[in-house]
Design a protein around this nucleic acid. Sequence first.
DNA 1: GCCAGTGATGTCAGTTGCTGACATCAAGGT
DNA 2: ACCTTGATGTCAGCAACTGACATCACTGGC
Lengths: 199, 199
Amino acid sequence: MSVTVVGYDPSMGRWQPGARGRLLQAALELYGEHGYERTTVAEIAARAGLTERTFFRHFADKREVLFAGNDILNGVIVEAVAATPAETAPIDVAAAGMRAAAAMIQEGGDLPRRRAAIIAPSVELQERELIKLASMTALLAEQLRGRGIAEPAASLAAEAAVAAFKTGFARWLEDEPGRDLRQRIDESLDELRAVAAGS
Amino acid sequence: MSVTVVGYDPSMGRWQPGARGRLLQAALELYGEHGYERTTVAEIAARAGLTERTFFRHFADKREVLFAGNDILNGVIVEAVAATPAETAPIDVAAAGMRAAAAMIQEGGDLPRRRAAIIAPSVELQERELIKLASMTALLAEQLRGRGIAEPAASLAAEAAVAAFKTGFARWLEDEPGRDLRQRIDESLDELRAVAAGS
DNA sequence: GCCAGTGATGTCAGTTGCTGACATCAAGGT
DNA sequence: ACCTTGATGTCAGCAACTGACATCACTGGC
């Protein structure tokens, strides 16, 4: 939550501070109340006390509001991957990145669930989610290549880890709150190993 | 690049057959010549001798022209999966679907490569491609569940197979023409098995 | 205390993707 | 000949974005 509001730098002089945060909150509320597609950017801007043009100065497009924290998440993943011993198997390196992402997501309180509820019914938003996951996969593969893992092993390890993340996350959403997301991801990864082995 | 501009011809009646095909060809040409984003629907319609409105009667949106054959591909996959013996391991069932898809793609001549060249530089088109692959994954998982495979194994087997498809296809694109796509997919699947095992 | 510069916002006009409503026109059957 | 049907044309309009320019508060230097 406080993580998603960064991008605004209070050390530099401002207008009425928090324009970006207000836009973000207004968008989340409206998407939740009336659905993504039935919400216009003009409505979001109005609720935030700003203009449509200003919305597009803070967010690349109408969808991006829901994916603002993605860069930070990617940074966390890179960090976790780098902290991994050099002898670690590629799939475990990638998995470490996913577990770090999971830890961060869990700190978001109810925001991940609200977000998921908004994205689920909208194909347009699912597309954006998928490309963010794809960029996460590409990032993992790149890190692995940097560690000397050749293609296509690097990409496949990354794909496998992200698949475990996706499946684990989907399960976690259906769990009662309080469950550990990392555990669900680990379970999925184990299941993936078994499935790949041909069980 | 034979640009067949056929418009209104009073001697041949109000409209000529093959409107959809003309739109498709015009779109492919223009996307290839100037890129997807720099092509307007009005331009496509003009080259096909039709109006913008007619374009949207044949294709849901500007991107969908490039993904028109997807339904047929999904049908081929379902068929191949159904033709698989009941004792086949989940990952191999899903892989059979991917091989059938590969066979069909290879019959497309140079179209798959042209398509890929158009999609690669456009994020918007990559998004659409990803959601088509996701729907393919969901379809595979559904077929597996229908065969008695429980979650999350069904989804994970589907994800693994599609990951092998993606990686194999990417490699195949870089190959000199004439290479067998199915072989590349099989190689990727083998590599995925090795990676998942923790090699 | 003043003034120029800077950065966030407002304003406005314009393009483009996309949709609904209605008109038109050829082809085929009765 | 008439009527129905289906593909297309025409037109108006909305909403997502973008570029250009104006504005206005705050900051730093004088």
